[in-house]
Amino acid sequence: MTTSPTPLALTVLALLHYEPLHPYGMQRLIKQWGKDQVVNVSQRASLYRTIDRLCAGGLIAVRETGRDQSYPERTVYELTDRGRQVARQWLDEMLAEPKQEYPQFPAALSHLPVATPQEALQALERRAGRVAQTRAELEADLAAHDVPRAVMLETEYLHAVAAAEERWLRTVIEDLRTGVLTWSREELLGSKTFSA
């Protein structure tokens, strides 16, 4: 069975690189270490599905199943030798090879003329405010942690991306405010872009 490299699958393999864990421990560490900024673990079911796929692919294995009186039965997983090799391969690929991803924001931007320039301005101003807040939170997070830089690289990256997006949004907002960027339905329908 081929297991596809996903951010969550890589994260599970990386966590098990350090020590055997049960799923609850994995989810707790992901949140505790701030990895939930880059890996979606809000639905525990997706973590369990990923673990099942990694097990079926021979990348992780059950180390033990135990029961503590105060907790339900817990299955502890460990990384296999094959899992260790695959994790390093996935890490190399994800670091070195840019992938075409399809986030919502660029898709929405590609249809901006569906809104009026004023509606677009209002929506982008709201986004700029939220991005500025995210940037400030990431800045505070970076300043608050006295850990090796390698542990916070994803936060550093997210901060840089948020800062760049905030700068770009401010220029687009200014162009919308001053009328440098504008459009109309008639103008769009008359353009060669929309001609049949």
Rank of each mutant, 00 (worst) to 15 (best):
A14E: 15
L15V: 09
L15D: 08
L16S: 08
Y18N: 13
E19H: 09
M26C: 06
M26R: 01
Q27R: 15
R28Q: 11
I30N: 04
Q32E: 06
Q32Y: 01
Q32G: 01
W33H: 10
G34D: 02
G34C: 00
K35D: 04
K35G: 05
Q37K: 15
V39W: 01
V39L: 04
S42N: 14
S46G: 11
S46H: 14
L47H: 05
Y48F: 09
Y48R: 05
Y48C: 04
Y48W: 03
T50V: 02
T50N: 00
I51Q: 03
I51S: 05
D52I: 11
D52T: 15
D52W: 06
D52L: 11
L54H: 05
C55T: 15
G58D: 03
G58I: 06
L59G: 05
A61D: 10
A61C: 06
V62S: 02
E64K: 15
S70G: 07
S70P: 01
Y71V: 11
P72D: 12
E73P: 10
E73K: 15
R74K: 14
R74A: 13
T75H: 03
T75G: 04
T75F: 02
E78C: 07
E78Q: 12
L79K: 07
L79D: 08
L79V: 11
L79G: 08
T80K: 03
T80Y: 00
D81V: 12
D81N: 09
R82W: 02
R82Y: 06
G83Q: 02
R84Q: 01
Q85H: 15
Q85N: 14
A87V: 05
A87E: 09
W90Q: 04
L91P: 02
D92E: 14
D92T: 15
E93W: 00
M94E: 14
M94P: 04
M94N: 12
L95D: 09
A96K: 10
E97V: 15
P98W: 03
E101L: 10
E101R: 11
E101K: 09
Y102H: 11
Y102D: 09
P103A: 08
P103H: 03
P103G: 07
Q104Y: 12
F105E: 10
F105T: 12
P106S: 04
A108R: 10
L109W: 09
L109R: 09
L109E: 08
S110V: 01
S110H: 00
S110Y: 00
S110K: 04
P113T: 11
P113D: 05
P113M: 04
V114I: 15
A115P: 01
T116N: 01
T116V: 06
P117G: 10
Q118W: 11
E119V: 12
E119W: 02
A120Y: 00
Q122K: 12
A123G: 04
A123L: 04
A123E: 00
L124N: 12
L124S: 13
L124P: 06
E125D: 04
E125C: 09
R127C: 02
A128E: 00
A128H: 01
G129Y: 03
A132G: 10
Q133T: 13
R135G: 00
A136G: 05
E139D: 14
E139Y: 15
A140Q: 01
A140L: 02
L142H: 03
A143K: 14
A143E: 14
H145I: 03
H145A: 09
D146E: 13
V147C: 09
P148Y: 11
P148L: 12
R149K: 05
R149Q: 06
